[in-house]
């Protein structure tokens, strides 16, 4: 089975479960809709906090979808079958990350600009927002895969997952929100985006390996 076939298989599974893939998008939208209701509708205030809030909402909605990443296939035994198929484990993890990003990260990329406009983010920062989401959310999925693999079979896996993954998300949050902040203030966002890209470049090869090591232990 090739990488593409693995991704396609995971996507099919995700779509068959139907609502699952869209729950995290809905969550993202709802959290951001609550913000003006909580802190008031003044455009200046909203524009100031929008970058950080969009990213916190993105973080939490990715986190929400992580627990299902391996758990259901671990429980029904199909993870064992994949392990026996002879495909390198890191490749299986990478395919799962790709599928997870396509169903949760990509929708955020589409919804982000709309919500940013509703939160009065200046339109000249929209491009940087998109770039930060494009570079940042794959990192969230990759690093999240490590956490998801670690808690497979654990007691209270969901809460534990948040505790493990959120500290690891700190750099992404800072660089991404910093990039949008800088763009909104008319400063160059490039250094932030480069660092965000650096995080992606670092986690792209390493995270599947770490997650694969953790997952192998879970199957032992």
């Amino acid at each position: 089975m090739s990488f593409v076939a693995l991704v396609r298989r995971d996507l099919r599974l995700a779509l068959r479960q139907g609502t699952d893939a869209f729950v995290s998008l809905l969550f993202f939208v709802l959290v951001l809709v609550l913000v003006p209701l909580a802190i008031g509708p003044e455009p200046q205030l909203l524009a100031r906090v929008a970058p950080g809030l969009i990213w916190i909402a993105a973080l939490l909605s990715v986190l929400l979808s992580l627990e299902r990443m391996f758990q259901s296939e671990y429980e029904d035994g199909s993870l064992d079958q994949l392990a026996l198929s002879g495909i390198p484990f890191a490749l299986i993890v990478a395919a799962k990350v790709a599928a997870q990003w396509l169903t949760t990260g990509l929708p955020l990329l589409l919804a982000g600009p709309v919500l940013a406009a509703m939160l009065a983010l200046p339109s000249h920062a929209q491009g940087v927002l998109l770039a930060s989401l494009a570079l940042g959310t794959p990192t969230l999925s990759l690093v999240g895969a490590i956490g998801a693999a670690l808690v497979v079979g654990a007691r209270r896996g969901g809460v534990l997952l948040a505790l493990l993954v959120l500290p690891l998300y700190v750099p992404v949050l800072i660089f991404a929100a910093g990039a949008i902040d800088a763009a909104a203030a008319g400063l160059p966002a490039r250094p932030h985006l480069l660092l965000l890209g650096g995080c992606l470049a670092l986690s792209l090869p390493l995270a599947p390996l770490a997650a694969a090591a953790a997952l192998k232990d879970a199957l032992r």
């Binding site: 490590i146 700190v170 390493l206 770490a210 090591a213 232990d217």
Partner: peptide
């Protein structure tokens, strides 16, 4: 313990 070792190593990068 084994899961923990993976976490500790991920953390040192972080």
């Amino acid at each position: 313990r084994r899961a923990g070792t993976v976490l500790v190593l991920t953390g040192i990068v972080d």
